[in-house]
Amino acid sequence: MAVTTATSGRTVRYVQPIVQGRSRFERAMWLFMRYSGLALVFLALSHFWLQHLLIGTHAITTAQTVAFWGAQGQPVTVGQLLFRAYYAVMLVLAVGHGINGVRQVAYDYFGHRPAAYKALMGAVVSIAAVISALGILALLLGAQASPEALTR
């Protein structure tokens, strides 16, 4: 589908006008940035406001993490499963959105130096992969209920 802008009279594509002619990967990434971004507006802002406004940073304890995630070796409630799913979706979208954002910035400043660009992105993707794996694994396992945290 195409539309014509009022002043220039030029016809532009309705969808993806900016990435026309780019590779399939770049077009997919362009769309991913838009849709993951729109999802993250709701996911990340609700998360931020819940933890920082309703609860407050100074009230957050390890006992709260255990209450939200469920403790390892204990039965998981439906609420805790929903919270884990919420965090897992947010983690995947946020890390993907973040890596692609960094990739675009890195390409702008290091794109003319392919070796430096590849080394930088290799480091970024490796670090992101390790941190995401830790995060997803933690959500699958649940929190460790340390005795001192539970007796507070």
Binding site: T61, T62, Q72, S132, G135, A138, A143, S146
Partner: peptide
């Protein structure tokens, strides 16, 4: 994400 994941692996560091 690293700090929160430590609640599963290293509660002292998480704390």
């Amino acid at each position: 994400i690293f700090g929160m994941s430590m609640s599963a692996f290293n509660p002292a560091l998480h704390e």
